[in-house]
Amino acid sequence: MASNIMSKCLLALLLLNLLSYNVQAQLSSSGFYARSCPKLQSIVSSTMAKAVANEPRMAASILRLFFHDCFVNGCDASVLLDDTPTFTGEKNAFPNQNSLRGFEVIDRIKSLVESSCKATVSCADILALATREGVVRLGGPSWPVALGRRDSTTASQSAANSNLPGPASSLSALISAFAAKNMSPRDMTALSGAHTIGLARCTTFRSHIYNDNNINSNFAALRKRNCPSSGGDNNLAPLDGLQGANRFGAHFYQNLVAGRGLLHSDQELFNNGSQDSLVRQYSANTQLFFRDFAAAMVKMGALSPLTGNSGQIRLNCRKTN
């Protein structure tokens, strides 16, 4: 009996190891294009350096593009596709409309890459690399970007509408949305720290500053100056609450502890709930936040990639070949 139980345990362990290997083997090392496109990394790095120097907010915009791509049918660059007569793309889905930006930066990188190594590097991999470069340019952590993704040949507006958590989400809804992607509450809280950079439109936080009780009254009054109860939908405010939009750090969590979360969904991370302790830890330990953010970005970048013979290498990120 004991030997039978031991055999079953060893078999279960072997299956788990094989599953883990298959997931990791979907993508290759960061040297995937070392021979086929040796200038790739330098092209992405230099182009993002110029883009962020010209407009620091662009780092947040590219990061948002990556998140909104990966959470909808995996990291396949579907978010970059324009509408066609045969399918409606994701750009005008409710969470993306009048919100996603940075497409022209990815187009620029893709054009330079195509000139260096034609039909070799996917838009999905370019977006993954550009995302890391943008974060690093604003003082955030780096992480290894596994490569080998291929591009989708279609997109899904309905999936974008249903998969992406919104600014009015509750903590339980956020946890569920990330769990559906095999990501933990800790992953979710760390990735929410992306809001340490970037700006948000008045329409996304108006309800929070006018209707919620879990908000610092002085902070609410400050934000109301630029976000009236009606009108001014496109007026902008920094996502991190107060400090600004151009430096990646732990101030986002410090503001949550002080009741200065700009979005309802962000303040839900510190609202007498299960993530309060972790938010306090991140607010006091930038390196812990950086470590967990980098690990979660690696995990997110491996969400359902197209590899091998699946998909294609698009020549233009906005349309299929």
Rank of each mutant, 00 (worst) to 15 (best):
G273W: 10
K118L: 06
E104M: 01
S142A: 11
S42A: 11
Q312W: 00
A25D: 14
F87V: 12
N96F: 07
L263P: 02
L269Q: 10
R260E: 15
R291V: 11
R314Y: 01
H251A: 14
F67T: 04
L27A: 02
S229R: 15
V145P: 02
T286H: 01
M58S: 15
R149M: 00
A237D: 07
S207H: 13
S217N: 11
N271R: 07
S283I: 05
T189V: 09
S172M: 02
N96M: 07
L242F: 04
I209M: 04
I175L: 05
S20Y: 00
M58W: 13
L11V: 03
T286V: 15
T286E: 15
N214D: 15
L315C: 00
F67P: 02
A12F: 03
M48F: 09
V121R: 05
L112S: 12
R108P: 09
K181N: 13
L269S: 09
G31L: 01
D276Y: 05
K181S: 03
N213M: 07
T131G: 05
A177G: 14
R223C: 15
T203P: 04
N54E: 15
C117S: 09
I109Y: 14
S230G: 12
C317D: 00
R137I: 00
D107L: 06
V52Y: 05
V279M: 14
Q254C: 12
T84L: 06
K39D: 02
L262M: 11
A296N: 10
S152G: 10
A180V: 11
A296V: 13
F270T: 08
A49Y: 02
G198W: 12
V279S: 15
F290H: 14
M58V: 15
T84D: 08
Q312D: 00
N161M: 04
L236D: 04
L164S: 03
D212N: 08
S42W: 08
R186C: 01
K299A: 09
R206T: 15
L18E: 06
C70Q: 06
S169I: 05
S29K: 02
N54A: 12
I62H: 04
R291T: 13
L65N: 08
A59C: 08
T320E: 01
Q41F: 00
I209T: 09
S3C: 03
A221H: 06
L16I: 11
M300W: 03
S111W: 03
G31T: 01
S169Y: 08
A119F: 11
L19I: 09
F103I: 02
S172Y: 07
R318Y: 01
C70T: 11
V44L: 04
Q287P: 06
P85L: 05
H251K: 14
L129C: 08
C75W: 03
R186N: 10
P305D: 01
Q281R: 10
G134M: 04
T203K: 12
L315K: 00
S29G: 12
F32Y: 14
G249V: 14
S172D: 15
G193R: 07
R223H: 15
N216F: 06
